[in-house]
Design a protein around this nucleic acid. Structure first.
Lengths: 106, 106
DNA sequence: TGCCTAATTGGCAATATAACCAAATAGCCA
DNA sequence: TGGCTATTTGGTTATATTGCCAATTAGGCA
């Protein structure tokens, strides 16, 4: 893997890594419909506000979400909705795995 | 996030996490065309065979790749080619980020 | 059987992530 | 200004990931 390719793969990995966490996946799904403020998301996820704030800033740093300040609140929204497309494939993989588990038992 | 949702998000995260590494992304791209044995991939990645073997077993454990033994060699192939679809979105995100960097300089 | 090659596994050290609490910051309004 | 709420940031601890080397396993063949 040459240096240029390595840089490209690292950049891609940063984006995917930002998605690859249960809470962050959940957050992305929550933002599918409409924007949400940090407190709302923290409540929905069931984690400390500070924890969720860090998840959000990570998602923002790689360009997956965007934010908008309104008074003391910060609303986050999906900036790259195409990440939602990942789920179809992921679900297909999980389904296939499940089918294979079932086959083994039968 | 209720228990059931949490489990689903964790399952999804496992699949995405398996993708979220520069070497593994490169491996997935290498397998796009045709199957490859471990030594070939190790050579292409530029890492120890043992390291690449572990990357491969991780990809396999989540159902992204599959393997086929032929003599003493093990050929890996893409089992869920739909993961290649991720790249289009990821590249779009990276492009957008880049455009924004450029705007800041101008 | 004994040797060779290919791959996997175990172990370890370095680094990265994650969660929480506490403290700091920022905007609003009395 | 002072206090209130929302959010971010710092710090710490626990856990997970990564990569290499060494050792093991497994198939092929003399």
């Amino acid at each position: 893997m040459d240096a240029k390719t390595k840089l490209r793969m690292e950049a891609r990995a940063r984006v995917l890594k930002a998605m690859a966490h249960p809470s962050r996946l959940f957050i992305v799904e929550q933002l599918k419909q409409k924007e949400r403020c940090v407190a709302e998301l923290a409540q929905a996820v069931g984690a400390d506000v500070s924890t969720v704030s860090k998840h959000l800033s990570l998602l923002k740093s790689v360009g997956i979400v965007d934010d908008r300040k309104q008074g003391t609140q910060v609303f986050y929204r999906l900036k790259a909705p195409c990440v939602l497309e990942f789920f179809g494939c992921v679900e297909k993989v999980l389904q296939t795995n499940l089918q294979e588990q079932i086959m083994l038992v039968k």
